[in-house]
Design a protein around this nucleic acid. Structure first.
Lengths: 150, 150
DNA sequence: ATTTTTGGTTGCATTATAAAACCAAAAAAG
DNA sequence: CTTTTTTGGTTTTATAATGCAACCAAAAAT
């Protein structure tokens, strides 16, 4: 291997997103961050991730602006990791993944956690719509490439 | 390493989804499949992925029910890989990733492809709503864990 | 009938990841 | 204030994942 391929230059926004959070652990860390976890040890306990890998992922997530490391305590050498605004914008990704999992990855009768609206306690749902409000499915949408010339 | 951790038993639907499509290449293959690519060589050219890795990923995506391999041509030894219904349900995940990328991963003035509604040619957007139609952000939602017992 | 393309497989080199041992600073306990 | 425990790592070593290149057989094209 000569180093993992980077999609930074890809014209496709999805590809760039995957470049930033597309590895095995990053999105799981982000999920836990949405869930309120902030400390190294909390992520570690929740994920069972190796320490060195967690160190590395937290650092790169901070570098990439998804998390911010906030010094905590007297000396400031302990950190709390919180989602930045950019990180919070991953919310729809998490919801979409959750929705897919709920629909396809649980047996009938098998229980799973549910994302609910805080105000009413009812399940949240995600949909994709055209500007006029019509629901849009995979066949109703098409990718418009950038005009190839300069 | 003793084998990569599996999240199959996780109660969290997002985690299970990541278990199925959370590796480096799978979602990129799925993206290309949404984009109409079907053949081994097409994926290979589009992604620059190594042949053996592509072979492996296509196989596991088929095993997991995201893609189906449809024999093509006379002898049926060449395959066309298409999204199953389950695979098509990853559409919101792709749209969410795209939306995140568009918002955060392109410089001002930098162009990117756009997902538009076929009927009107206008950009598609994704939103997360409570049952009553209110938009729901990260702070307005909370994960309801399964009752721990039994 | 020959050449080219497709769709792989195999072997080797390199990178990523995990597990465990180790460690220093901070926090907690006494 | 002294000792113990927790936190947040780093380093080392082993193994798995990935990439690259060579190879190959069957289809397809010429």
């Amino acid at each position: 291997m000569v180093g993992r391929k980077s999609l930074k230059g890809d014209y496709c926004p999805s590809a760039r997103s995957l470049d930033v959070i597309g590895d095995w652990w990053s999105l799981l860390i982000v999920r836990d961050a949405f869930d309120g976890l902030t400390r190294f040890s909390e992520f570690r306990k929740s994920l069972g991730i190796a320490r060195n890998i967690l160190t590395d992922r937290l650092r790169t997530l901070v570098e990439r602006g998804i998390l911010e490391a906030i010094p905590v305590g007297d000396s400031g050498s302990r950190m709390e990791y919180r989602l930045t605004e950019m990180g919070q914008d991953l919310f729809p990704v998490m919801v979409a993944l959750r929705q897919f999992g709920e629909r396809h990855l649980f047996g009938p009768g098998e229980k799973h956690s549910v994302l609910v609206d805080r105000a009413q306690g009812l399940p949240v749902h995600l949909d994709i719509r055209a500007r006029d409000g019509r629901a849009v499915g995979p066949d109703d949408a098409v990718i418009l490439r950038i005009p190839e010339e300069e």
